[in-house]
Design a protein around this nucleic acid. Structure first.
Lengths: 351, 351
DNA sequence: ATGAAAGCGCTAACAA
DNA sequence: TTGTTAGCGCTTTCAT
C-alpha cells in the first residue's frame, strides 16, 4: 500500500498539516522540521495522491486538450507543443480525439468538465453549425464558472463566450497562396476544400475566393470539391476534378494531406506536376518538403501557437492582447509544385 | 458553483447513496426513484466530480501513455489508437512526451503514479541502460502494487517485471529487409542506426546483421552510423556516410523519418535513388508512400498494436498469451527505393 | 511555527 | 429497496 500524508507525519513526528506545508512550500516551516519531514518523505518514498489533492484544493494539475486526431500531424504537432508547455508548469495533458465529430467534442467537453481540469484547450476549427456552437458555448460557460480555464487554439470563440484565442491567419494565408498561383498566370484554378460546415474550411475558402475576386475572376472559373482533410479524400477529390474540372491548370488544396493525395492520384494517372498541373497545399507539414515536387504551401506556426495556448492554459502567461486574441501570421512557401500553367487536368474517364 | 450529489439527492428527496446508485447502475433501484433522480440530475445538469469519485472508489478513469513525442507519427499513430480504445471504455488518456530522455520517463512515471491512474502504457523502445531499467522496474512495481495496471507497447518488460507486452517484430522485420536488399545483389550496405543504448536500435541492428551474416558478409562490409530517429539526423548521417562509406550501393536506415532525411541529402548532392544508391526505411509511415521514389520499408502494425494495448490497459481484453506477450508481425514492403546496385555513394567532399 | 479539526464530493459497508 | 455513516487523503482555516 502506498504511504499517505499521515504516515509521513507520524514518522516525522509532526502533524499532517506540517507535511502538507513543506510539500507545497507555501507556508513558513522551520528548517529543522522541514529537514525531518523531507527525510520521512524520502524514507517512505511518498507519492502524493493527486485526486485527493484535487478534491481538497479544488484544483487539478492536468489540462485537457481536444483535437480531431493526434495521428494527423496538424494536430499531433499542436498536441506535442501543448504537452511540453504544460509539463514546464508541472501539468499533465489529456488528449481527446474527436475525429471531427461535434458530438464527440461535446462528449469530451463534459468528461473533462467532470475531471475538474485546470484548463481545457480546444484546437482545430470545429463545426460551424449554430446548435453545436451554442452547446459548446454553454459547456465552456459551465467550465469557466467552475474555475476551469478555456483557451481556443485555431478556432474562434463561439458567440457569447469570452476566452483567449490563438488565431491562425487561415484567410490571409489562403489569399496569398492563390494570389501566388494567379501571379504565375493560372486562370482556371480548381479548389479542394475541407468538409462543409467547418470553420477552417470556410476561412481558407474565403481567402481563396478573395484572391480570385481581386483578379477579376468569378467563381465560374473556380470549381470547388470537398474532402475531409485526409489524404484519401484528396486522392478522391483529384479523380472527381478530372471529371468536373478538366482543363484546370492548377489545383489549390485546403491542406497538405489532401494535396499529397491529389499528387498521388495525378501521378497515378500520368499527369505531371507541375509541368501539366500545379498543386498547392496548406499547413507546411513535415512531409511537404519531402514530396516530389516539393509542395508549395502555407506555413502555419502550429507549434508556436500551441505553445502559447499551453502557457496561457497553464496560467504561465496572461493573454492581454485586445480581444484576448493572439494573431499568428501565415507564411507563403513557394516551392516547386506550383509553376506556370501547363496542359491542365485531363478529362477522366476520357470520352 | 457546480451542483453536487447532495444537491441532487435533496432535490429528488432521496439519499446520496441512492443517487450514487443510479449513477453507477450497479445496484437495484426502483424504477420510480430512478426516474425522480434522473430528472433531478437533468434539472441541475449535474456533472460528477471525478477526483472525488477517484478518491472514494480508489479507481480513476484515466490511463497514462508515455511516448517519445506525439508529433512523431510513429508515436502519434500509437497514441491515437490508444486513445480511441480508451474512449471506448469511457476512459481518458493523458499523453506524456519524453523526447527519449530516460529521466523524463521516470519523472512521468512518478507523476502518473501520483494520479493513481487506471493503467499506464509505456510505448517505444526506452533506454537499455541497466540503471534506468532498474529504476523503471521499481516504479512499475510500485504502480502495480498500487493497483495501476502497466502495459508495455513496443518494448520488452524490464528484468523482473511481470506485465503484458505488445511486441513488434523489429528484429525479424529488419532481417527480412536486409535480406531483400541482399537478394537484389547489394554487397556493400551502409546502415543508419538509431541512438545507441536504445532497445529498438538494438533489435533492428541485430536483424540487419543477422541477414548479413547469413549471406556470409562480415561487419567489415557494413559501416554503421547512428542517428536519433529524426529526419534531420538522417540527413546528417547521409553526409557522414559519403565520407566514411563511399562506394556503398545501398543504405538501410533504422526508420522512415531518417530514411527521408537520407534521401533528401542524396538528392541535394545529385545522387539518384535508386539508380545510384538504394535506400530502405522502417515503419511504413504515411509519408513513405508519398516519397519519390516510394520508400521500400517494413510495415509495423502500430495502430493495431496500440489498440490492443489500449484494450488491455482498459481491462477490456485479457492478455493470456504465453509470457503475456502479444507478437505483432512485421511485413516487408518492397517499393521503388531499393533496386539492383548502381554506382554507389560518392565520396564527399570529393578528393 | 505548528497542531487540531472540519471539510472537499463521493463510495461502500452496514442497517433497516 | 433505501438510508446512515464512516471514511478516501489531502488542504486549510482557526487556534495555540
Amino acid at each position: 500500500m502506498a504511504s499517505t500524508l499521515a504516515d509521513v507525519a507520524a514518522r516525522a513526528g509532526v502533524s499532517t498539516a506540517t507535511v502538507s506545508r513543506v510539500l507545497n512550500g507555501n507556508y513558513p516551516v522551520s528548517a529543522a522540521t522541514r529537514e525531518r519531514v523531507q527525510r520521512a518523505l524520502e524514507e517512505l518514498s511518498y507519492v502524493g495522491n493527486a485526486p485527493a489533492r484535487a478534491l481538497a484544493a479544488h484544483s487539478s494539475d492536468v489540462i485537457g486538450v481536444i483535437v480531431s486526431d493526434v495521428s494527423d500531424p496538424f494536430f499531433g504537432i499542436q498536441a506535442s507543443g501543448l504537452q511540453w508547455e504544460a509539463a514546464d508548469s508541472g501539468l499533465l495533458a489529456v488528449i481527446c480525439n474527436t475525429a471531427g465529430s461535434p458530438a464527440a467534442e461535446l462528449k469530451y467537453l463534459r468528461l473533462l468538465l467532470g475531471q475538474r481540469m485546470r484548463a481545457i484547450v480546444l484546437t482545430g476549427g470545429g463545426s460551424d453549425e449554430p446548435e453545436h456552437l451554442d452547446a459548446t458555448a454553454a459547456l465552456i460557460d459551465q467550465a469557466q464558472s467552475a474555475g476551469t480555464g478555456v483557451v481556443l487554439c485555431g478556432r474562434p470563440a463561439p458567440p457569447g463566450v469570452e476566452a483567449p484565442v490563438i488565431a491562425y491567419d487561415n484567410r490571409g494565408g489562403a489569399q496569398a497562396l492563390t494570389r501566388h498561383v494567379l501571379a504565375l498566370g493560372h486562370r482556371r484554378i480548381a479548389y479542394v476544400a475541407g468538409p462543409p460546415g467547418h470553420g477552417t474550411t470556410r476561412s481558407r475558402l474565403e481567402g481563396h475566393r478573395a484572391a480570385l475576386a481581386d483578379a477579376g475572376l468569378g467563381d465560374g472559373a473556380a470549381p470547388v470539391v470537398h474532402g475531409d482533410f485526409s489524404r484519401a479524400s484528396g486522392f478522391d477529390a483529384a479523380l472527381e476534378l478530372m471529371r468536373v474540372a478538366s482543363g484546370s491548370t492548377a489545383v489549390v488544396v485546403a491542406n497538405d494531406l489532401m494535396a499529397l493525395g491529389v499528387i498521388a492520384a495525378l501521378r497515378q494517372h500520368g499527369v505531371a506536376v507541375p509541368a501539366e498541373v500545379s498543386v498547392a497545399g496548406f499547413d507546411d507539414l513535415p512531409a511537404a518538403v519531402d514530396a516530389v515536387p516539393a509542395l508549395t504551401t502555407v506555413r502555419l506556426p502550429l507549434r508556436e501557437g500551441a505553445r502559447r495556448a499551453g502557457r496561457i492554459a497553464a496560467g504561465a502567461e496572461p493573454l492581454t492582447a485586445p480581444g484576448r486574441m493572439l494573431w499568428m501570421p501565415a507564411e507563403l512557401l513557394a516551392r516547386e509544385s506550383v509553376a506556370p500553367p501547363g496542359a491542365g487536368l485531363p478529362q477522366w474517364p476520357p470520352r
